[in-house]
Design a protein around this nucleic acid. Structure first.
Lengths: 337, 337
DNA sequence: CTGTTAGCGCCTTCAC
DNA sequence: GTGAAGGCGCTAACAG
């Protein structure tokens, strides 16, 4: 079913149908308009995006690449929220979202990078510095607008916008909160499986808060591997035998925080009297902890919609409004501190 | 950067470059091959998918529509897993995934339905029967292969495959388990906000198990609205005052089950002695409940990959292998029964 | 094994 | 307000 056929059916020229389909009704006669509308409906006409894209050199589509070690790259909570927000924002503007999940070593497999399919690319990166750089470098060569989630803007990327949250402040807030509550010795639970830049920032915030209170020691990192439930508990069990005891556990996300909470409760620890625990993100499932975890609320969905609006604006206006947008975070006091 | 330019640089015809780019190396001279490869790399050439799609009438792209009341349509856990699996499966075959989240009343806004952008459409529907029918009817008119998640195949959809899990058996399993444990009076926690066909099946399984044990009464439905945490607890509080007490709570997902668990614990109920509680799905966060919820494991990620493979096969072979594929579920015994 | 030709469906341009 | 011509980048079909 093509524009031509619709035009023949409606007894008008293809251009008239094209104008109608693309909402350029301004100069069309009312009678012509209804005739075209009927033909479109009768023939069940759908415009061919490939042909339009070829002619206009615009795809009306945005790409989203999520780099994660796990094939279930959306289970993180953060990516889930960001993708929902992004997809709603770009869809509302008539754009499609093309989603791709990759491991840090799979740059070469990326269809979205190696073909011209989208008008702009959004990325949520993880992995080693060199793996991340490989991605940003590749995207920099595309001559396409790029948007980075949870990372500072990159030098190599000129036409680029960064949308992030104030993770350093989050780490700072939560550490000050613990200090005020009397904690002096800290374990920091982090996962080593997927390396997010955002986590580094949180750690910096923690270190900064400690330094400001005059404490430069008393922080001990516990590697929780993939950060999954059992693995976190195993790491904690080892830490309890090998390391001197602690007042507080700062988990870099709620998943690890809740795993720690359940584990310590099962060992008879009183929370928060014996040990205080904090998480990070406050995504839906966070409410399932018992007692409620003290945590930081991350505006994941808003980050996604903000990014979508920013990208659409870039495509319409020719350049990004800002090089970097930072959304705020918020401390949520629970029963674990 | 076009094929022509690459061809000029490599001193060959455009067809040779096209063949090289599309992996048709069979008949190319080794020397020619390296010359083309160098030109492609030097010019940083990326094939234009729109042009290729126009010429071949194939988009190398699959659409995924998730119909949900909530804008955060991926937070459900199920859609998260299905989308991850689907995206990995189609990406591995060189296809792109185009994602769209819609409310049940937003059929008219669907870009994926109203433009030719994909080679096939996958859908996870919810909402009233008529709203769902509007979607399947619209897709039926597209002359495109369709794939339905968690629904039986539809009569109106000829070129269609359904990928689901045995929800009825899940409901049956969990109810028999509760009966064996001595429960006689049941509350069934369901959300009315987003209506999934899968939930109906679970309910039928519950009813069937009760009927088989000779009990036709003793089941009371509790409407938890959106099914979110606080709303579930409010609904439960009302039910406790208005309704005669119960032995067991069958929640239609883990979210509601955990909300019920936390609420009843806070009211001093002993679980499972006073009341038994079950959930449904066993997605990641399920482990955060304390004690662990007895639940049914849903193979969400596998459903996604199965669907992806099935759709790719359909596109290659011209028809679906099966009209319907049902994956199995599994009872997971926790501490709440 | 490589080159030539033609046309996919649409929209920009320009004529009417 | 509407029509005709041309070409976007690519590849099927066929010629050499």
């Amino acid at each position: 079913m093509t524009l031509q056929q619709v035009a023949a059916q409606a007894q008008v020229s293809p251009m008239t149908v094209s104008n109608f389909v693309n909402g350029k009704h301004h100069f069309m006669g009312a009678e012509t308009k209804t005739r075209v509308a009927e033909a479109v409906a009768a023939l069940n006409y759908r415009p061919d995006s490939a042909a339009r894209g070829l002619r206009t050199a615009r795809q009306r589509s945005i790409g989203m690449i999520v780099v994660d070690q796990s094939p279930q790259y959306l289970s993180d909570g953060f990516s889930t929220q960001v993708v929902s927000g992004l997809s709603n924002a770009v869809n509302a503007a008539g754009y499609t979202l093309q989603l791709e999940g990759l491991r840090p070593d799979q740059l070469a497999q990326s269809t979205l990078i190696h073909h011209v399919r989208t008008d702009g690319l959004c990325m949520m990166l993880s992995g080693s510095g060199s793996a991340r750089k490989a991605f940003t470098d590749a995207v920099g060569r595309l001559n396409q607008p790029a948007l980075l989630f949870l990372e500072k803007p990159k030098r190599g990327l000129a036409d680029c916008c960064a949308v992030l949250q104030d993770d350093r402040r989050g780490g700072h807030l939560i550490t000050r909160h613990l200090l005020e509550r009397g904690a002096r010795r800290f374990w920091l639970l982090k996962q080593s499986h997927t390396q997010w830049q955002a986590i580094r920032e949180r750690e910096k915030g923690v270190a900064q808060a400690l330094a400001e209170s005059g404490r430069t020691t008393g922080l001990h990192a516990v590697d929780c591997g993939s950060g999954r439930f059992e693995e976190t508990q195993v790491a904690l069990r080892q830490a309890l035998t090998k390391t001197s005891p602690t007042d507080a556990i700062i988990a870099m996300n709620d998943q690890m925080g809740i795993a720690a909470l359940k584990f310590l409760k099962s060992r008879g620890a009183r929370i928060p009297q014996d040990i205080k625990i904090t998480g990070f993100n406050a995504f839906d499932f966070w409410q399932y902890s018992d007692p409620l975890l003290t945590t930081i609320r991350s505006p994941g969905y808003d980050i996604g919609t903000t990014a979508g609006h920013e990208m659409i604006h870039r495509l319409k206006a020719g350049q990004f409004q800002k090089r970097s947008i930072t959304l705020d975070v918020e401390l949520i006091q629970g029963g674990t501190t």
